[in-house]
Amino acid sequence: MNPSLKFILAFIISLEISLKASLTTNILVIVFALIYLICTRIKIKELLLLIILPFIAAFTIFATLYWFSPASDPYYAWDLSTRVYVYTLTIACVTRNVTVTGFARSLEQNLHLPSKFAYGVLAAINIIPKMRMAVKQIRAAAMMRGMYLSFWSPVLYFKAILVALNSADNLAQGMESHGYVEDQKRSTIVVIPLTKKDWLIFFGLLILTNISLFLFK
């Protein structure tokens, strides 16, 4: 399915579920999300992490509403706690088999967002490994001078900001040297298709979700 449509579908479903309580719909979304992840051959370790990690938040919400609330409401407690898994698993489905580059290209081509936005997202994500290395180098240089820069040290973040500003300037110069001109039409190297099948799946899942929301509690 097209990455942009997957993102929009997950956003709409999550928004509707947050506005209307329907435990049955929550369970159905969770089941279908798990089936989709399994069909895409997700690793068992990743699937277990998606199930175990949100459990703390889900259990906290359930315990607060069921045991520690003045007016205990089991249905509402189950509804809100299962929403945690709905949000987690739908996001996992959106990111499944979708690269950051492909998603940025889809936003530019299919949703017609400005190219500077797509390239800015890619630049920000690709600079993260360089920033991690820069932080390690800053801490190592400080330790050689007898200074220990902790994780929350203002000096560490000030130096990291200077490195980021320098990297941003180098990136801008590099893009201009490769012919990038802001607000100018650019050729497409890799086309992200948006087919009728994508639209059918999009509207089909959206309609089924809304039917479930208004028919089941």
Rank of each mutant, 00 (worst) to 15 (best):
P3L: 08
S4I: 15
L5S: 07
K6V: 11
F7H: 03
L9R: 11
F11G: 08
L15P: 02
K20Y: 11
L23G: 04
N26A: 13
L28R: 02
V31H: 13
F32G: 02
Y36F: 14
Y36P: 03
L37E: 04
K43R: 11
L50S: 09
I56P: 01
I56K: 12
T60M: 10
F62A: 09
A63V: 11
S69T: 02
S69Y: 07
P70V: 04
A71T: 15
A71S: 08
Y75P: 02
Y76Q: 11
W78F: 11
W78V: 06
Y85C: 01
V86Y: 02
T88M: 05
T90G: 04
T90R: 00
I91S: 15
A92S: 13
R96I: 12
R96C: 12
S106Q: 02
Q109N: 12
L111R: 03
H112A: 15
P114E: 09
S115D: 11
F117A: 06
V121I: 15
A124S: 14
I125D: 03
I127S: 04
A141P: 03
F151D: 15
F151T: 15
W152P: 05
W152G: 14
L156D: 06
Y157I: 04
Y157D: 01
A160P: 01
L162M: 14
N166G: 09
Q173A: 13
E182T: 00
D183N: 07
R186P: 04
R186S: 10
I189M: 14
V190R: 06
V191Y: 06
I192L: 09
P193L: 03
L194I: 02
L200N: 09
L208W: 02
I211P: 05
S212Q: 11
S212T: 12
F214W: 14
